[in-house]
Design a binder for these strands. Structure first.
Lengths: 245, 245
DNA sequence: GATCGTTTTCGCCTGGGAGTCTAAAACTAC
DNA sequence: GTAGTTTTAGACTCCCAGGCGAAAACGATC
């Protein structure tokens, strides 16, 4: 049996890598990293970075290796598995199962990109190859949700930041306005951020100097305090408990 | 060359299927469906149901097909993709990438099981094959979280139920006490459940007859109302809005 | 048939976190 | 010094989850 029906299965890894970047108009925008395909299928369509999983290679290791061809991997501050797409017709001609990741790059990183690779507005995607548009949508949904109940913000923000900067990152990623007052109170209460003590000199148009903050931990932590149907009070640690690790 | 470097890659699908079942002592317990391996590797260890992904078969279709060999698939009320495990050494000898699913079976279902297959207490797992224990743990964590902010409860409960029955399902799945009063108010407020109007005759020991409820929708819906860092009020629908679909 | 124990239901109260608003603080530019 | 701009801090409200206790509705027993 040769030819038509796919006689082998390939496994590939993909990543939807986001970064909050400043548009020419000075606004913050959530961008996703895409490269333009030079070959069929889907020639000239835009695709997610990634490639075939090696035989002796873990999934996480593979996506890091593949991403290294597009951006400096050290710039990727957070990477988590998103989903696996396995529709038989998602790739014309061959059977390809894809495990995709969500990646986040801090706003101050400016990795050198290959000629075929660009940042694109995550809200208005260009013509996308395969099912990569669905993957980007799923990744955005995941990111929005996780900004609510985890500290992933650290992976979008610079190491140190003012509240208005952080506000801009959250606004761009969430897609709606965020109150700086509220954001500060919520993140402080949760112990996610802390003031460095420093302050940034005011801009050219004056204004009070902004206090500088940083994230306490730069690894993912979930805020379980907000689960409903919690265990009864006696089973719970006091509400003021700080995350121990 | 046989042995060392795997010369091919296989993709398998697995499922951690849960059901709340009544123990001989009359308590509700969360059980997971396992079968006992009859062959090496990991002979006599317990494994999750599943098998090799077919060449022209979608992931969801495949896990349904594989599950059909263990339980009546129509009994599975909810099935969602969980994660993909791809550590190179997770399967001795061969390279096997596994995509696992979380499955839920209502409490009243009593599917016939093959001889090698059993329900096991999800809290005290037996000796498990491969990395299946990790998968079960991840599935439980996912289940716990989703009970908080979605209506997955419908997939654990019988079509109609009293609040104390539902309370038992939630207690078993969450692993801690749940107040019936609170559970009723929360689920009613969210519009997840509704009274059927009927009532169950009281038990042999008397007591007020319990009102009967049912879930409004038997498909997954997320309760987005509880995301923090919500959009400003003007962008939001009024808080009393009922889910329209 | 009155009482007791049991189970469920309903209402009220409480606490706490999120969202909102306004005033004060701190700075630049003119 | 005054006006304008940006950030910070406090106070206030709203609303939901959690907790408590009383009332309702039943079976069993005497």
């Amino acid at each position: 049996m040769r030819g038509m029906p796919p006689d082998e299965m390939r496994h590939e890894v993909l990543a939807a890598v986001f970064q909050v970047r400043r548009t020419p108009h000075g606004a913050d925008r959530l961008d996703v990293l895409l490269w333009r395909r030079g070959r069929a299928p889907h020639r000239d369509a835009w695709a997610l970075p990634g490639g075939t999983l090696g035989l002796a290679e873990g999934l996480g290791a593979s996506i890091r290796r593949q991403l290294a061809q597009k951006v400096d991997v050290r710039e990727v501050a957070h990477l988590e598995q998103l989903m696996t797409s396995g529709a038989p017709d998602r790739h014309p001609g061959r059977r390809v199962v894809a495990t995709s990741y969500l990646g986040l790059v801090p706003a101050d990183a400016d990795p050198r990109l290959p000629d075929d690779t660009r940042w694109h507005d995550a809200d208005t995607l260009p013509s996308m190859a395969f099912d990569h548009a669905e993957i980007v949508d799923a990744a955005r949904t995941r990111l929005r949700a996780k900004l609510s109940y985890t500290n992933v913000g650290f992976a979008l923000a610079t190491p140190e930041f003012t509240m208005s900067q952080l506000c801009g990152y959250y606004r761009a990623a969430l897609g709606h306005d965020v109150s700086a007052t509220n954001l500060q109170r919520v993140l402080l209460r949760r112990g996610q951020i802390e003031p460095t003590g420093g302050a940034l000199p005011s801009g050219s148009r004056g204004g009070r100097p902004a206090a500088v903050f940083r994230f306490r931990d730069r690894r993912l932590e979930v805020t379980d305090e907000f689960a409903v149907l919690r265990p009864p009070a006696t089973d719970r640690t006091p509400t003021n408990a700080q995350p121990t690790t």
